[in-house]
Design a protein around this nucleic acid. Structure first.
Lengths: 347, 347
DNA sequence: CTGAAAGCGCTTACAG
DNA sequence: CTGAAAGCGCTTACAG
């Protein structure tokens, strides 16, 4: 299995009658090269179909020129993260960055494992949705000099560039909608309570209730993991209560899908017998029956902005940290009641 | 942004009082090292927390030791491929391979673009679902010495390791089921007809019809792209026919979701007014209303086997090519009629 | 069983 | 503006 290394810098240099240093210079175009020389080299590069070996470049450079980004995704089965990946990918490759991906399946050990591997791949940046318990580990990354941008949530132990959504407001709007449509007993399936994002959504939920004069009943706020199974089981638990909710607000995609499974398997009618509103919209929310009313956060946009931030961080390592908070959008369809249309969330 | 290169081989060698060659040997454990020496080196490695720099390793070696796999995914929004990715990832990292991913969004140019980038990343293997028109490009990869395994479909111009599913039989079983449940006018939304997988599914569809004495009506076999939008639009087209089908068989996930959108938006009852059966099962097929009857192909399993094949190919480049064809499973739920349970597809 | 040395394909001071 | 040379962190013949 002899994989050809392809045309090398040296071959280009020889053919163009210059030194490798010069060829390198025209490629990286940081230093000035005489127009005539440059043209000649460019021509040879084209002729030979030369493409720099990124591995060699990476080995040689120690700054942000390695052009490799490590992407740590909590759960690739969650359509929201798929959108984030798409956004990141599109804009990363456009900037000549490649992406190494690690899907850690909401598991702390695997997140560590991947970080270590990606380090030995000499990535020069990390994009990570930090898992509870990983605060110190991620902080270390920053201290070691990696560019890192957090998505979906930040770190509890330091400031950092983070791109997220206004979870509080998103949840608030959702619950207000439910109230407006007539519900007063609204269950909440919250997801993993260790994750800041979850807590923000809980706050939004509580605030909306309080504002509308509805008492908070801890019995109908249930949380375990942010996965499909939890959605299935916690919905059953809610429904089995002596005094069950008339509406359920689910804290993410996976939970929503799980909840729907339980609801349908019991033959309950949506929204007449039970209303449902989910955090996270999906491109196929309208393929559900009835179409799902959902809090939309644009993963694609988050991905785009993340690459932007990362790029700026690499270019100017000392720039102050920023936290970008995108607004959510409530997509009103028919799983909660009868109104239809969409309302922007307002802050 | 000075990213620390970490502890180097040299530092380990110095501290252990041996040459770098020896340390390298104990790491790669291909050649014999004296037990005592090995122990000493191991200890220092542990002490210093040494981890080999994979980039340097990659630059140096030219065979299958680069430990990097390029993964070319047609469409990461398709849950089937998400499962494939999960399978690949899990088993790749277990074998100490890292994955660079390129999601080319069913676009030929982007597939080429990614292949080129991944080459310059010195991957030693490619996993690819070849897009129509890419036959020669992929063949070249093989000729250049890369290990490549195809998923979902092979190449038309050469044999190769391929891991796929019995599409003919899967479609056949699906259509037979529809017939058994009472349908005789079954529409087919086929997806991209340039893709061999599509053609196999069309054959299965036609064979089942013919076997059951139903004439093939080209008017209700419609195909364009294998995406959501096509599903939405072609379903409308089918439904608008003077003599519309009573059942629709969709050729993949995305098409199914698109079809559902149209069906629900028209307020049609499933399965009474229109039955639907989809190729590709999803873990949330039971969250649909009614639960979807679907042809299940295990993406996760495909991923697992792919890594296996790749590994063997790297170890023994000259071994004969194999084509692994997995069976599908018809998951009978309630979107087609009243029977319930599941039947294995049989060949 | 082990070491000295070359080299993978680049980039980057250092001279000129 | 350009070249000669060192070196990134490894692995691998070649000797011994």
């Amino acid at each position: 299995m002899a994989i050809p290394k392809g045309v090398s810098l040296k071959e280009v240099a020889d053919k163009a009658g210059v030194s490798t240093a010069t060829v390198s210079r025209v490629i990286n175009s940081k230093t000035v090269v005489k127009g005539e020389t440059e043209l000649r080299v460019q021509k040879v590069i084209k002729q030979l179909g030369y493409r720099p070996n990124r591995v060699a470049q990476r080995l040689r450079t120690t700054n942000g020129a390695s052009k490799l980004i490590g992407l740590l995704i909590p759960d690739i089965q969650n359509p929201f993260y798929v959108d984030v990946i798409r956004g990141i990918e599109q804009y990363a490759y456009a900037r000549n960055f490649a992406i190494v991906i690690g899907n850690f399946s909401q598991n702390e050990e695997r997140q560590k494992f991947y970080i270590d591997i990606l380090k030995s791949e000499s990535v020069d940046a990390f994009i990570v949705a930090p898992f509870p318990g990983m605060n110190d580990y991620v902080k270390e990354l920053v201290e070691e000099g990696y560019a890192v941008v957090c998505i979906d949530r930040g770190l509890s132990n330091m400031d950092l560039d983070v791109v997220k959504v206004d979870n509080y407001q998103g949840a608030f709007d959702a619950v207000e909608h439910l109230v407006k449509v007539g519900h007063r007993r609204i269950g909440f399936i919250s997801g993993n309570m260790q994750i800041p994002t979850t807590l923000e959504r809980v706050s939004g939920y509580e605030a909306a209730l309080t504002k509308n004069g509805i008492a908070i009943d801890r019995e109908i706020i249930v949380g375990r993991n942010s996965d499909h199974t939890s959605g299935v089981e916690l919905t059953a638990q809610l429904l089995d209560l002596p005094h069950p909710p008339t509406a359920i607000f689910t804290s993410n995609n996976l939970l929503t899908l799980g909840a729907l499974e339980t609801i349908h398997s019991r033959g309950l009618k949506i929204p007449e017998e039970i209303a449902i509103l989910g955090f996270d919209d999906m491109y196929w929310s309208t393929s559900l029956n009835p179409p799902l009313t959902a809090v939309r956060q644009s993963g694609f946009e988050i991905g785009r902005i993340t690459i932007d931030l990362l790029y700026q961080r690499i270019m100017e390592p000392a720039r102050p940290y920023v936290s970008i908070v995108l607004k959510t959008e409530l997509m009103v369809r028919t799983s909660c009641g009868h109104k239809s249309g969409k309302m922007k969330s307002t802050i």
